[in-house]
Design a protein around this nucleic acid. Structure first.
Lengths: 220, 220
DNA sequence: TGCAATAGTGCAGTCAATGCAACAGTTGGC
DNA sequence: GCCAACTGTTGCATTGACTGCACTATTGCA
């Protein structure tokens, strides 16, 4: 298994059980991919349940792994951090995202490019209702999770700053790039928090956050 | 010693050596306070030097402590995390900041209140020129440090969201509060990055960032 | 069926972070 | 100058996140 590439934000797929029940949810994936997905979801669910039960700090990776029926080593093959498992953050290669930004910058304004890329990076969450309920509970009790800084996320942030700074030119390009990216991620984080606390999917949450931000009601 | 309260962002004071040379830099503090400050700065400097030399990941807390001439236990009495020591972030009680926000909200708009509080939380950095040079180097080589999420910072963030949400009222108060605080901290983080990379003091950097943000050039 | 790829595992090890109890220098009152 | 309350420093033991490595088990494909 790839030692946890990280970067494309997405969340766990549909419930393995319901998929098994329906039987038709092959997704065109091989048996291998399906199993991988299943264990991943099992861990995510286990993490959520345990955090809901005992609180984030009292849940160990070992506990999560055991409930999900895997070894702790396997846990870290799927999730880069404990936080990531609870939040269901999976990321792809950071250079893909920064490349995507570079391309978008050719055809759109920096603002639009940033938003398009960030939005694209948020894969929809087809989460089941019970997973949503769990997430709501967890986020309500664990405000700590509102601020994501899951390892590789920082990597992406850094690369995006570089790409943007390069594109902007001018004396203050660097500073402008830093601010733009920081604000962009602030919106993304907000979307994540909203998504989990309201039980809506990430893209919807992101759009809502962006709308609110643009409305000027924010006063930030 | 207080087991590292955390929250009031500030940076290490003046060079202990230069203070010793001048002799008149008593600051009205007791011998105790002075010594405490000195060891703190020694650790901060050691951390910066080592990171500049070997890179963040290859520097252990033990190495920092040894160079600063203290035990690792003492290290953690002063800094809540390794990151904090490198960045020179010290924080006070989080409730003080949220209290401050609550008060400011009585007399100013949310936007002004947020900014005032965040700005106040940034104690000036009277860093020596050589420390600045070190910081520049470190920040250039360690982009990881651009995204601060030093433990208790999250705590402050959370409390601010609560206070703000309570004050805003309305259906979307919660979401608005989350976004406002996230953006506020995004600006603060940007200020921190700018301060270190340009070798200017935090307040100046913060004002500059806010001005740039308000100018609309950002395109976030 | 057999080979290549890849998911899962066990193990040993590193290191950040914390609690506790003992110790030492500082301060203030007398 | 001396004692008592503080408070900073330290060593020790411990927990738990995370990693590298070598190895086994499955799966996909020819």
């Amino acid at each position: 298994m790839e030692p946890v590439t990280d970067t494309q934000i997405s969340a766990a797929g549909p419930d393995p059980d319901s998929a098994a029940a329906g039987g038709a949810c092959d997704d065109g994936l091989g048996l291998r991919e399906q199993k991988k997905r299943q264990t991943r979801i099992a861990m995510h669910r286990a993490a959520l349940e345990l955090v809901a039960e005992h609180g984030f700090v009292h849940v160990t990776v070992e506990m999560i792994a055991r409930r999900a029926g895997v070894s702790t080593r396997t846990f870290f093959n799927h999730w880069s951090t404990k936080d990531a498992a609870v939040l269901g953050i999976i990321m792809g290669e950071s250079f893909e995202i920064s490349e995507s930004l570079r391309i978008q910058l050719e055809v759109s304004s920096p603002r639009e490019a940033m938003r398009t890329v960030l939005r694209e990076a948020l894969t929809a969450i087809p989460s089941d209702s019970d997973l949503r309920e769990l997430k709501k509970q967890v986020m309500a009790k664990e405000p700590r999770l509102h601020s994501i800084s899951s390892g590789k996320l920082i990597e992406v942030q850094t690369e995006m700053v570089e790409v943007l700074a390069e594109h902007l030119e001018g004396e203050q390009a660097g500073t402008l790039a830093v601010i733009a990216v920081q604000v962009g991620f602030a919106l993304t984080r907000s979307a994540f928090a909203l998504s989990m606390s309201e039980g809506i999917d990430l893209i919807t949450a992101f759009d809502e956050v962006v709308d609110l931000y643009d409305s000027g009601l924010i006063e930030a």
